[in-house]
């Protein structure tokens, strides 16, 4: 038998949860949260740009250069993960089971990104770039670290979605909300990469 249908959901506890006029509740709530997150990164980036603009030399003398080339590979993995999740969403609308493969691919590519970032951090710390070595190091770990925390949180949410999918309990609103957050994490990264690594 085709497993197109979802298991019956527990009835929502309140009428508030059954009504929706603009967007599904989870998506609207996540959208508002993403606006806050965008402003958080905007604050960090503008602080970074101000300090960088006032510095006589950037990166400061004696500080290691960031591995822009290796991170480009990483960036590609992250973007591929976002694309894969996009296809998972499209497949889910047709037939929920078909979403499993692209969803797992998105999860794996996202994990590749996080793991390689970790390896890069270990190398940079060995080379002498730390939180206290300079404002360059401090801003690098602050901005990239904040992004990494977001990526880990989003991966946990994606893994949870994949588990719900395997149990046939994944609701469309849940997948959309989690995807929205992952699109944000993926979408903000090229900006961070350009500002912190390249520019």
């Amino acid at each position: 038998m085709r497993q197109r249908t979802l298991r019956p959901a527990p009835a929502p506890a309140s009428v508030a949860q059954r009504r929706q006029q603009l967007l599904p509740n989870g998506v609207l709530g996540m959208l508002i949260f993403v606006i806050t997150e965008a402003m958080l990164f905007a604050g960090m980036i503008s602080g970074f740009l101000i300090v960088k603009a006032n510095a006589p030399e950037w990166p400061p003398l004696g500080q290691p250069r960031l591995p822009a080339g290796e991170t480009a590979f990483n960036t590609a993995a992250l973007l591929a993960s976002g694309a894969s999740l996009f296809f998972a969403n499209r497949a889910y609308k047709v037939w929920p089971n078909r979403a499993r493969l692209p969803l797992l691919a998105a999860l794996a590519l996202g994990a590749v990104f996080v793991v390689f970032q970790g390896i890069e951090w270990v190398a940079l710390i060995r080379e002498g770039l730390t939180l206290t070595s300079s404002t360059h190091g401090a801003f690098f770990y602050l901005i990239v670290g904040t992004h990494a925390l977001h990526a880990v949180a989003a991966l946990v949410a994606l893994g949870w979605s994949a588990w719900l999918l395997s149990q046939r309990r994944l609701r469309p609103g849940t997948l959309q909300a989690v995807s929205l957050f992952w699109y944000f994490v993926v979408g903000v990264w090229p900006i961070l990469y350009f500002q912190v690594y390249l520019a």
Binding site: A38, L40, S46, T135, L142
Partner: peptide, 20 residues
């Protein structure tokens, strides 16, 4: 958002010895 960014930076300055 920007204040949370600033608060994290200030906390790092207080406790981790950064120099934001």
């Amino acid at each position: 958002g920007p204040l949370i960014a600033g608060a994290v930076m200030l906390f790092f300055d207080q406790q981790l010895g950064t120099a934001f």
